[in-house]
Design a protein around this nucleic acid. Structure first.
Lengths: 124, 124
DNA sequence: AATATTAGTTTACAAATGTAATATAATTAT
DNA sequence: ATAATTATATTACATTTGTAAACTAATATT
């Protein structure tokens, strides 16, 4: 079980594509990110290479192309990043954080209901 | 009204001390962070200087010592960082983020009640 | 076969960040 | 007056990150 490496903002974007479409070729990642960012293909390939080096991605050779897949699940990365965020910005205090988001962001009626139910389950 | 600069993890620790005790001298910040981190005084002073350069902190000369105060409120920084986190990690989707935290972290009964009330207010 | 394209690797460069020593000037202590 | 201490500024160095070109080898096209 690896320790989760630090994944930079730009690298997150690459991981997100991979989590969505794994296994995927570098070309697929490039095509996708070219649309959503202003990055050049070379930039994206570098980020891919760094993620491989960091142990976040791995690949299988398929002909001349590599098929990339994540070594860390999206869930694990989200957990690690969320914990780090909570600690750094709110000193680990969950309620003030939730209050901040609830004040600032929009939620639909359905979402509010679902969250209330989740809170009720937590009350047991 | 300044745009909020990017404040690194280490710089956050300095800002937190300043928000708590502003105005404060470099020495006070150093003393506080020496206790909670393994940083040397010179490290902390560099961070202070960078925050001044970034426009996050400013100072007033008081004798030979400087009295530092934040140029950006804690609230503003928290908002900016929270927004960035939500976008980067959850693609801007608030509910999955809240669900993740509610699953992973602890809340007291009182806190749960308060959050439920906040959700009810949001229902209007 | 020669040329063009392609996929991954290597190299490049600048800024940001983490960590801290050194320099300088002013103040304090002896 | 001299030496020591102190507070800020400057300098240092390594790593990380953002961004991307250049290189190399293999495959595809002509």
């Amino acid at each position: 079980m690896n320790k989760i490496p630090n994944i930079s903002d730009a690298e997150w974007e690459v991981m997100k594509i991979c989590w969505l479409s794994a296994p995927c070729s570098a070309n697929e990642i490039v095509k996708s990110l070219e649309q959503s960012t202003n990055w050049k293909p070379n930039t994206i390939k570098t980020l891919i290479g760094r993620l491989v080096k960091k142990g976040a991605l791995a690949f299988k050779e398929e002909g001349r192309s590599y098929s990339y897949y994540p070594l860390i699940t999206e869930e694990e990365c989200i957990k690690a990043e969320s914990k780090s965020f909570l600690t750094r910005v709110f000193g680990g205090a969950l309620k003030p954080m939730l209050v901040t988001f609830l004040k600032e962001e929009k939620l639909s009626q359905v979402e509010i209901e679902e969250l209330k139910q989740l809170l009720e389950i937590r009350e047991e």
